[in-house]
Design a protein around this nucleic acid. Structure first.
Length: 560
RNA sequence: AGCCCCGUGGUGUAACGGUAGCACAAGUGAUUCUGAUUCACUUUGUUGAGGUUCAAAUCCUUACGGGGCUACCA
């Protein structure tokens, strides 16, 4: 009867096979309905993206629909701010739930009726055991539970007590409703789990209408059933809850039941994914909010310059399994680079300026040079960048005493200015303390545009901006937030594993075409990495967030 | 400890019982007006032991290893 017995291949294949089979056998009238059911108690993160892609992906693949449902049955932690951010993020990721937006809290009345029905069927009872007393009756992993006096209350008494629980006759925590299942079950979740609790708490949607709230195990299968979900996909930790999921629906006499299937949640190296810990980072100001670009939240990734396409590609590539794995963030970054590489315009920018005076270039003269916007995309066209006697190059692009395989500028060496001219370093100007103030170069007018008529080659091409034309901006360099592969493990406070250098702020000098960039625009600063103009940007001082640094074997070799 | 789930290169994943493949990472080389990109090549794997079979990553047994569950959270 359980299709899992015929399981073959990977869980994703299993899910596909199952859905295809169900369509073929007309199990749910050929319908496919899935759902993404977050609790609105925090912001969505990359782990949720995996679930979203699966839930919506399966529905789309089989011509079904996917619901977005706020699983808001616990009034203490939930808020509309979260619900709105969730809708925003799902939409941004590129998924559409159409008219299928639901709130579990809209079902409170129906759920209450289901609990009444369960009581009427002798399948649930009101229990007066305190949370402290309960473990004694529930038993342990090895010891079966035992019955309490409350377990044998009459149906009439239970109905009356449950009614009065709803009416507010009893104090918070003084009574719960329990499903009457099996106190000796090896599965602890089947040992008379609580399905309703008393909690006088303002709910962000139902206000003070209710003082009793349903528990997850009872509520979730009902939500799925009410919405006529066919395939209920969830993470592995709910596997052991599945018998309960089925028990409620069966004992309520429901037909055409949804079926729960579990898959592994995402774990990423160097990344904290626990909502609790992410909330702590926000509350303790260890980051600047849920959308801090260092956060693994969808909004954080968005602000950092991640594209929905890159995230969806990542979710596709990691696959679906039934065992816990630890995925390398490098894979996520690879997916982003792959996407950004083909769509981001290249721009010239210098982050750590060193002045270069072109001694044989006339003062006051300006050359307008043509620069290709994106070599990967001919459609992207080109732009003009000004060149003049004084320019800035990056300090890293000059070494007074270069090691063997250094390709860039050094005394006596010639390099190419990207889209510009060949320049040769003739002189290094220093102050009394031996600090390099500026360098003097000569340029070869014949090399305008970047190639020499005599065919001579240079080993390096460096980036530059005209000192008089440059636009200043702020760059925030975000490194990974955590230094260890799996933060917060082994009883170590995960906060002690934060990378102190995860955020560096620097000024940079941009080519003039970037004077009016808009928030959210993406760029590649050539040879330095991918950038996203921050949503906080002002026209006077754009703020760029670094997303992923380009692969740079030069800097790697430096580390060895 | 009882119950449940799961073991394929460094990582993430494929393979009706029939050639162990792909991607990332790493390395080498080529091309390059970004030390990027692109391209080519290379290294590394079925947890162990028994079975069943002409044939096992796949089926069975067992050992070992990893994960989950003991909330009036979801």
């Amino acid at each position: 009867m359980n299709s899992e017995e015929n399981k073959e291949g990977s869980p994703l294949d299993f899910i596909r096979t199952m859905v295809a089979e169900d369509i073929k056998t007309n199990k749910h009238g050929g319908r496919v309905e899935t759902r993404f059911p977050p609790e609105p108690n925090g912001y969505l993160h990359i782990g949720h993206a995996k679930a979203i892609c699966l839930d919506f992906g399966v529905a789309n693949e089989f011509g079904g629909v996917c619901h977005l449902r706020m699983d808001d049955t616990n009034p203490t932690k939930e808020d509309m701010e979260y619900a709105e951010s969730i809708m925003n993020d799902v939409r941004w990721l590129g998924f559409d739930w159409g008219k299928h937006l639901y709130y579990a809290s809209d079902y409170f009345e129906k759920m209450y009726e289901c609990a009444v029905e369960l009581i009427k069927r002798g399948k649930a009872y009101v229990c007066d055991l305190t949370p402290e007393e309960w473990p004694e009756y529930r038993g342990t992993l090895t010891v079966p539970g035992k019955s309490s006096q409350y377990r044998e209350r009459s149906i009439e008494e239970n109905l009356d007590l449950f009614r009065r629980m709803r009416d507010g006759d009893f104090a918070d925590g003084s009574k719960v409703v329990r499903a009457k299942i099996d106190l000796a079950s090896p599965n602890i979740h089947m040992r008379d789990p609580a399905i309703y609790r008393i909690r006088r708490e303002h709910h962000y949607r139902t206000g003070n209408d209710w003082c009793i709230y349903p528990m997850y195990d009872f509520a979730h299968c009902l939500e799925d059933y009410f919405e006529r979900i066919t395939h209920s996909l969830c993470t592995l930790e709910f596997e052991i809850h599945r018998p309960l999921y089925d028990w409620f629906l069966i004992n309520l006499g429901f037909e055409d039941r949804p079926e729960q299937t579990e898959f592994a949640r995402l774990a990423l190296t160097y990344t904290v994914m626990s909502k609790r810990k992410l909330l702590m980072l926000v509350q303790e100001n260890l980051v600047h909010g849920w959308d801090d670009p260092r956060m693994p939240t969808i909004c954080g990734l968005r602000r950092r310059g991640y594209t929905p396409e890159a995230i969806r590609k990542f979710c596709e590539v990691i696959g679906i399994t039934k065992y816990n794995s630890l995925t390398d963030v490098a894979l996520l970054e690879h997916c982003l680079r792959e996407d950004l590489n083909k769509l981001t315009p290249r721009v010239l920018a210098v982050m750590n300026p060193l002045k270069v005076v072109i001694t044989n270039y006339p003062d006051g003269q300006v050359d307008e040079l043509e620069a290709v916007n994106n070599p990967e995309d001919p459609e992207a066209g080109s732009r003009i960048v000004p060149f003049s006697r004084e320019i800035y190059i990056d300090r890293n692009d000059f070494m007074e005493d270069p090691p063997n395989k250094y390709f860039r500028l050094a005394p006596g060496r010639e390099v190419r200015l990207r889209y510009g001219f060949f320049i040769k370093c003739e002189n290094v100007i220093k102050d009394a303390d031996d600090n390099i103030l500026e360098i003097h170069c000569t340029y070869d007018p014949e090399t305008r545009g970047g190639s020499a008529p005599d065919g001579r080659k240079v080993k390096g091409t460096i980036h530059w901006v005209s000192a008089n034309h440059a636009v200043k901006a702020e760059v925030r360099l975000y490194d990974r937030l955590f230094m260890v592969e799996q933060p917060g493990e082994d009883d170590i406070d995960f906060r002690t594993q934060l990378n102190p250098d995860s955020l560096k702020i620097a000024e940079c000098w941009l080519e003039p075409s970037l004077a009016n960039v808009k928030p959210g625009e993406l760029f590649q600063f050539e040879r330095q990495g991918y950038f996203c103009v921050d949503l906080d940007s002002t026209p006077e001082l754009p703020v760029f967030n670094l997303t992923v640094t380009l692969k740079d074997s030069w800097s790697k070799n430096q580390g060895k």
